[in-house]
Design a protein around this nucleic acid. Sequence first.
DNA 1: GACGGAAAGTGATATATCTCACAAAAAAAG
DNA 2: CTTTTTTTGTGAGATATATCACTTTCCGTC
Lengths: 246, 246
Amino acid sequence: MDFEMRDNLGMPSKQPLIDEFLSKIEIFKDLPSESIQLIDQRIIKKTYDKGDRIMSEYEVAKGVYFVHSGIVKLTKQDEQGNEIIVCIKKKGEIFAEANLFNQTGHTYPATGTMVQNGQIYFLNTDDLEKELMYSPEMAVQIIRYMSESLRDMTSILRDIALLDVYTKTIKTLERLAEKFGANHCNRMHIELPITVQEFSTLVGTSRESVSRVFSRLKKEGIIEITNRKIVIVDWCRFCSHFHQRL
Amino acid sequence: MDFEMRDNLGMPSKQPLIDEFLSKIEIFKDLPSESIQLIDQRIIKKTYDKGDRIMSEYEVAKGVYFVHSGIVKLTKQDEQGNEIIVCIKKKGEIFAEANLFNQTGHTYPATGTMVQNGQIYFLNTDDLEKELMYSPEMAVQIIRYMSESLRDMTSILRDIALLDVYTKTIKTLERLAEKFGANHCNRMHIELPITVQEFSTLVGTSRESVSRVFSRLKKEGIIEITNRKIVIVDWCRFCSHFHQRL
DNA sequence: GACGGAAAGTGATATATCTCACAAAAAAAG
DNA sequence: CTTTTTTTGTGAGATATATCACTTTCCGTC
């Protein structure tokens, strides 16, 4: 599974070797093929290992990123170095998009770190902005995506500000299940390797507090954890029991 | 100061009476005048008093809003009815923009309430979306605005999750001063009538906690409050003393 | 200018969550 | 498979913040 084919210049071909991935990504899918080709030429592809830093919140922003494969967590820290996970991005998603059309010299809105090995595409802000000026379809996709993000962040903000640790943990489980869940016979497998430590920074609380909630949920047979993966044992029951608007 | 001139149909004029406000609003300013005219025709203008509800987070979203005058707070509540202020919008700003291009049937991302009398413009989502499809300039403005919002929300999320009440209060003061501040000889007047109660929901804490912090800040001569308006006595000192990246 | 109702200040107390410390368990490395 | 390192679980105690209760102040209104 290696997409670095465009480096293979010697290979004869009827038409340019356009990255299949690009045309599948939401914001690019409606683009005319010439635009895709153009973007394909500008994009920089890079492979990262788990734990690798992609960009930092203290670094001047140069572009936006796309997840080709793997998983990325976006974090932000306070002066003491405590950190919170702002968002987790998976295949097909864009991140650091909050740089678009902002004044130059801004730093990245958050720090990006690989949670699972994968390949990340980088696109210079200018290149994407240029394309956006001529492609209303793409602009629409970006707006749609940003709308969604804003909406999500608003809900998360409310939860972090108002709820107690137990409820926040449940809600976070529900959110992760929605995004990373694979339902096998009512067992919801959260396909995201995450430590309790990391989970707690997603909830906005301490590791120990989450650990206690998890202990309780395990004891009650609601969740199981093996190898950094969480399984919600009875998804239907979980949802009906904790049903709430997210 | 009444902008409802377009109702004044009997009045003779050389050119259509386009709303001056529209062409000043960020996302509309670069639009060709035909588009402005078109939008002007679709827009619904309404005057609200302090305390009036504009739209609710439990209501199906129908459009986006623009603040022509006055101030609007956007809040979100949990199941118990505790609420948090997500954002405060002033003249020239757009809100409920998180509805754009989202699937229909979604509710508004937050509840909007007037904090100060004013006039609000409403535009049907479809109308704005239609315009956006043909106007890359406007799309760019929207993306720019959303980028900024996303960036802000990320920082606020971090602060609410990680900081103690005292620090959050200071940061909130700083943010309000940046947005609503008028600096008179180093006295920063926050031109926003806000109760301690409301301020606390902006910080994500209890009224009493903020009251205690304010008492301390008043005693130390850092702030003054008269008639729901906060003044930061020595802005330079405030900034250098609490200087931190927002 | 006085009145009445809403908002704010403040002490005392309750409590949820954090922190610390260490043992147990689980991954990762060799 | 064994060793080493990292992560996790859990009790006990510390602490920041919430909550309650009441007084005082403020502010809009009559």
